[in-house]
Design a protein around this nucleic acid. Sequence first.
RNA 1: GCUUCCGUAGCCCAACGGCAGAGGCACGGCGUUCAGGACGCCGCCAGUGCGGGUUCGAAUCCCGCCGGAAGCACCA
Length: 958
Amino acid sequence: MSEQTTQQKPASDEPKFRYTASVAADIEPKWQEYWAAHHTFEVPDHPADTGAPKAYVLDMFPYPSGAGLHVGHPLGYIATDVLGRYKMMTGHNVLHTIGFDAFGLAAEQYAVEHGIHPRISTEANIARYKEQIRRVGFGHDTRRGVSTIDVSFYKWTQWIFLQIFNSWYDDQADKARPISTLIAQFAEGARRTPDGRAWAALSAQEQATIIDSHRLAYIADAPVNWCPGLGTVLSNEEVTADGRSERGNFPVFKRNLRQWMMRITKYADRLLADLDRLDWPEPIKLQQRNWIGRSEGARVHFPVTAVDGAEKTIEIFTTRPDTLFGATYMVLAPEHELVDSFVAKEWPAGTGEKWTGGHATPAEAVAAYRAAAAAKTEVERQTEGRQKTGVFTGTFAVNPVNGEGVPVFIADYVLMGYGTGAIMAVPAHDQRDFEFARAFDLPMRIVVAPPAQWPQDVDEWPEAYDSKTAQITNSANDEVSLEGLPVPAAIRTISEWLTAKGIGEGTVTYRLRDWLFSRQRYWGEPFPIVYAADGPEAGIARALPESMLPLELPEVEDFSPKTFEAGDVTSAPEPPLARAADWVNVTLDLGDGPRRYHRETNTMPQWAGSCWYYLRYLSPTDDTRFVDAEAEKYWMGPQDPEDTGGVDLYVGGAEHAVLHLLYSRFWHKVLFDLGQVTSAEPFRKLYNQGMIQGASYMDAREVYVPADEVSETEGKYFYRGEQVTQHFGKIGKSLKNVISPDDMIDEYSADTLRIYEMSMGPLDMSKPWDTRASIGSFRFLQRLWRNVIDEETGEVTVIDADPDEATLRAVNKTIDGARNDMEGLRFNTAISKLIELNNHLTRLPAVPRQAAEALVVLTAPFAPHIAEELWSRLGHDGPVAHAAYPVADPAYLVDETVTCVVQVAGKVKDRLEVPPGIDQDALRELALASDGVQRALEGRGVRTVIVRAPKLVNVVPA
RNA sequence: GCUUCCGUAGCCCAACGGCAGAGGCACGGCGUUCAGGACGCCGCCAGUGCGGGUUCGAAUCCCGCCGGAAGCACCA
């Protein structure tokens, strides 16, 4: 590994005009400057209608980290660039650019660590990224590369937030509408207020509360993910399955906090349904479906008498209402709001120790259990949580199907955020309830008939029987019987009965929860929201008018977040913006005269900017609208009535399956509902590139050693004489295996890097990086160069004579194959075809111009610099980037003769040279008469002959 | 535990159900070269993870196992 060959210092006798790293270092910047100076890749916001098709290709918005790019990053960018250039050469208007997602936790943490203001460090990182990206030679329209931290960008992020804030979801119309339409409905009496009073009779406070409960962006007191280690709350999507922060890996606690939320749940059904209309990888669709988690079931009301004597009901959600007769207890989530009203003064006579948890009163037991639950991280809930815990509230509810009293428990295996936060427990037929019932000696009743081999006695069951195909038993009252019904029919029957009796109804529940949208950080978009300091509207969120946007992030002395001990449960978030007193406390005239207000001090999450940046690319300088309407229609509008519209190709990693890709679909749909965009979806086609893996090396202490100082001997790896072990995985600073694109460009060329990355294998597959193997790509370019340029004299050597027949065939077959491969994003096989043609030309005594030019044009999307150079040396004026991609002449795609394989019983026995147009019968006769067949048959008869003219004949012997 | 994807030469990877090899790396020989490197020409190596099945014919389709990767995981 350390013994890298290098072309940096050509030996004295190396031909003067050979394609080397130093030649590449001359021509690559030259062409990059040419493209910029000649606006080669600039495209109008909405091109004139010339009948040309369009292609909007997009890379996932990079976050510019302090570490710079490594060779894994450009993979997707190169792929979109290759496709974009190809599309341009096939007559498309192409829009391709790249910007930066530069707000957020990571950028802020980097700044804090380095003691620099995040704007300074972020802009420095962006500059570095831009330089690295520039060197790779992308065909970007750089005028469009916006960053989320640009004030002119986040003005519109704030504007979109206000659109969402000022909207509600009209279930009737099944779309978002302006909040004014809701207010009008209340004012006209078309919609009832919750308590039935007239709208005008309500106080401003009361009206605001009702309106806010419908807004798509709203403030709520809800259990949220509080991460003391980061000093901020996080969305569900940012918390890993083991209950830690995705960033930093700190513990996360459930806390009730007042936070901004986005009502994404209103879109659950549409987000789910429209997946079917998208050209996305199936695994990503599946992940979104799972995350949305639609499940059909029923809500059922269980009557219960509260401790104060009030008659209440506990509403539960179940997917198995057919098992209602088997419900023998109930469980509420510890955070359930009704719990307090059910905590009995004392334990009912005879309550066992298991149920009381050893506490003297239910109040003590519940308080202790709740405190313990709140102090647990999600990870603890899960690892310990497999052991079912809980306490009895001292109260019994009534099972509405049979009038039986059922004890009410609280237990943390029931989650507040799903369904109604309360369940009926059917221990015989639900594994979780089964485990709880075993732990608490609760009765089980069999209501789904198990197979004959199951023990008669439920006490001997090893686990719950949860079949959905069996028959219901022991389930009847005076009015309804499920006896003998299969599960689906039983669900239908009982649901109808529940609805008729008014004690329940069929319903749909989602796993998806509303999106927690505020962060207690400095480095994010400020909310364009203020609160009146006094008066009747004090504390009510009020939107700034559009004229007051952008609301700029204030400069503060101390931008670092208040963080806490990672495990400090009692801590509470303190937004850094709250310290900017001058900014927070303001006098504004919002249309009703100057008044004192204080600003919202939370900031938006990093996702906000990435929810809509692809729209801003379309008209980056428009200061009247977030996106020019015509531009959006042109680049993203639906192509036909069935089409959702959206970006034509979106390339990025699969790690954003549910975060960015779900959030931006949600925002886009809101904008669509409000008539702001014509596309119903942001990304029509999504493609996940695979990960480039790097070899990392660990010594005996399991410490990573610098990969570039490891040498290989006989399949073993050594670092400073010590043997080390090799692993393949992510590339990263901590793994000490970073290879930057700059390293590759210095050693070979940007074109080599591009060709190598595209030829490593299928784009969507993960594959190991091997710097040594990239020499092959370099050699290809060197041979290509040599096919056009004399290495000794620098003269163009192509001849103007017509190519021979074989060369014409090779050229046309390459054109045909490359076109197909380009359309299918099979860049690896396209390149292999180019290499094949190149090798063919190498063997000729002289290369015909026609063949050389075709190959140069075909190579241009992959290796644009060398292609431009050769194209220009071949005497062309315009850039090869604008040359027409060749079209194959069908006459040269068929060979004069083809080799027909003759099989006997599926085994190859002979080969025949036949004309491609040979007819079936003639070929059959030829094959049967062939030596190989005669020998293989050894006189046996022939049962059938399968003829696939002209390539194959298979003789099946009798 | 459940779901999805992937197993082809020493390595990275090709192959509409029809001759297992397109391309590259590494390796070897010859040529060129003072030499090394580079370059040119030629060569080498697998029967497709394992076991069944469907088919005239299976790397390819189906079933089961083994190995690897990813996702989900108290969601009622």
